[in-house]
Design a protein around this nucleic acid. Structure first.
Length: 258
DNA sequence: ATGCCATGGACACCATGA
């Protein structure tokens, strides 16, 4: 089973690129983020025509997450993270496909930092850690896939250079500490586990020729609980997708579990 | 400190992103 995560940065504007990637990569499950569309304007028909069942949680203008499953309808298990009834941002959608629990998550960016947006990011991470504790032991393989908006380390394997990013929310010690606590709870960073030293960038800013210079960041992750980790066969980034016309600023990342 | 690029909303300028 191939499970992928892809921040599309606008699902309607990106639809030709998304369909092209689904056709060539043929993921069994695709978690999308940054739909930037309301529920009513989500391109359901085009995605079903491509052979995918789909769940989505949209939001007008911003955010928005979806779970696609090839040849079947994902079964929804949760819409929105628990822990804050006042949170209206569409950033978490969880489903079961073929006995595997899969979440599509879009963690808050958190800039500018410090400030209320950074506070929201850290609070959201606490809620994620709390919910992940219950998922970890649910008995099924679980994959938490998405745009975490956290660069795990300063190593060149995670970021081309920290010079322009030192004050960015993606690199702050508080963001990293929360990400590390999620891992310590029993979640494996699948791409890094299989490729300990390789650069695995998933985001290249549109600004300043960052794609052309391969000035990337690793911020999209697939986190696996122990039953999923035991079945992990392969993992990678579809880097070429970022180099196309009208590309998202993110590339898809994926795992294969047996 | 700012602009650099891109998306989408409800406009031909703004909010947001990372």
């Amino acid at each position: 089973m191939k499970i992928a995560t892809f921040n599309v940065n606008g699902v309607n504007g990106r639809l030709p690129r998304l369909l092209e990637w689904l056709e060539e990569a043929r993921p069994d499950v695709a978690c999308l983020q940054e739909l930037k569309t309301s529920d009513a304007t989500f391109p359901e028909a085009a995605i079903r025509d491509a052979g995918y069942g789909v769940l989505w949680h949209g939001q007008k203008g911003f955010n928005g997450v979806a779970v696609l499953a090839r040849g079947t309808d994902p079964i929804e298990s949760r819409r929105g993270l628990p822990g804050d009834a006042a949170d209206t941002q569409s950033r978490y959608l969880e489903a079961v496909v073929d006995g595997v629990v899969i979440a599509s998550l879009y963690l808050p960016n958190g800039n500018p930092q410090p400030g209320p947006k950074f506070d929201y990011k850290l609070a959201w991470m606490e809620r994620l850690i709390e919910h992940a504790a219950t998922l970890r032991d649910c008995g099924a393989p679980v994959v938490l896939a998405g745009d975490y908006n956290v660069v795990p380390t300063d190593a060149v394997a995670d970021i081309y250079s920290t010079r322009s990013w030192k004050k960015d929310a993606l690199l702050q010690p508080e963001s990293r500490a929360a990400f590390e606590r999620l891992q310590a709870q029993g979640w494996t960073d699948a791409l890094r586990a299989l490729h300990p030293d390789a650069p695995l960038y998933t985001f290249w800013d549109y600004l300043r020729q960052r794609w052309q210079r391969d000035a990337g960041l690793r911020i999209d992750h697939l986190m696996l609980n122990a039953p999923a980790r035991e079945r992990l066969q392969a993992a990678g980034v579809d880097k070429a997708v970022r180099g196309r016309e009208k590309a998202s600023d993110h590339a898809p990342a994926w795992v294969v579990i047996s």
